[in-house]
């Protein structure tokens, strides 16, 4: 192949690779895909869950052409800033620190966190029982900070890529306890009674989850806020929330 031909073919391939980013009307939404029942990949390889349903309902309301893709949790904000996608719908809690990096829509659900232990460990039902124990948590979540604040050096903290791997290690007894979003763990405990998990007394981190959007995309943010208002008012939101949790998650 001559050099000229090679360069032409190369440029052509580059354009093919770059073209998806050129479709300006498409809204690219990212979610984690490992945070059941909020967002997860089903055995068929499709994204499912509360976040996914909300994202789809919002797109329908906006009559927008959306694509959904997965992104590892600990790289979510950097990837948004690097324009790998335009919107995060991944149960991300609105925090001051994250607000310095990206913008959030109005809350689309409220949640708290609780510690979860194995029943067979027979721990006393209070957080003091966790002193000297090993506690698991998903990396780069608000809960990671909570353990440090509550226990300092009194516990061993292990961080996981996904909450699912953290659950797996609590089951395997590598962990004595873990902390995660309460609605998520409640769903797990109800659907997997064989795992023998139970909540420890106490709820922490009352937070609101928001949809993350780049700060400069103010127009997109307004569109999402308007669509969120619409699905809350027309009952779509309650329908989705009831489907997954049997109640509305918009109650504080």
């Amino acid at each position: 192949m001559s050099m000229k031909k090679f360069i032409l073919v190369f440029l052509g391939m580059m354009m093919l690779v770059a073209s998806p980013a050129l479709g300006a009307d498409k809204i690219r939404i990212a979610t984690e895909g490992a945070y059941s029942p909020f967002n997860y990949v089903n055995p068929k390889g499709e994204l499912e869950g509360f976040d996914v349903d909300i994202a789809k309902a919002l797109c329908e309301t906006m009559k927008a052409d959306c694509t959904l893709a997965t992104q590892d949790w600990d790289g979510m904000i950097p990837a948004l800033q690097a324009k790998k996608f335009d919107v995060i719908v991944a149960s991300m809690a609105i925090t001051e620190k994250r607000k310095q990096a990206i913008a959030f829509t109005n809350p689309y659900y409220y949640s708290v966190a609780s510690y979860v232990v194995r029943k067979d460990a027979n721990l006393a039902d209070n957080v003091e029982a966790l002193h000297g124990k090993t506690i698991g948590v998903q990396r780069a979540t608000i809960h990671e900070g909570t353990i440090k604040e509550m226990f300092g050096d009194k516990v061993t903290i292990k961080t996981y890529d996904t909450n699912e791997n953290c659950i797996l290690d609590l089951k395997n007894k590598r962990l004595d306890a873990m902390i995660a979003s309460r609605p998520l763990m409640a769903h797990f405990i109800t659907h997997h009674p064989d795992a023998g998990f139970s909540f420890l007394l106490g709820m922490y981190n009352p937070v609101a989850a928001g949809i993350g959007i780049r700060k400069e995309d103010t127009e997109l943010l307004e569109k999402f806020n308007a669509a969120l208002d619409t699905i809350i008012k027309n009952g779509t939101y309650d329908q989705i929330s009831t489907k997954w949790f049997g109640e509305s998650l918009l109650k504080k």
Binding site: D74, G75, I77, P78, Q81, A101, G136, R139, A140, K158, T159, Y160, D169
Partner: peptide
Amino acid sequence: TLMDLTGMARTLAAETY
């Protein structure tokens, strides 16, 4: 879950964005 050089880098990157 081990905090080797890469593990620490991932944690710090997630903390600082």
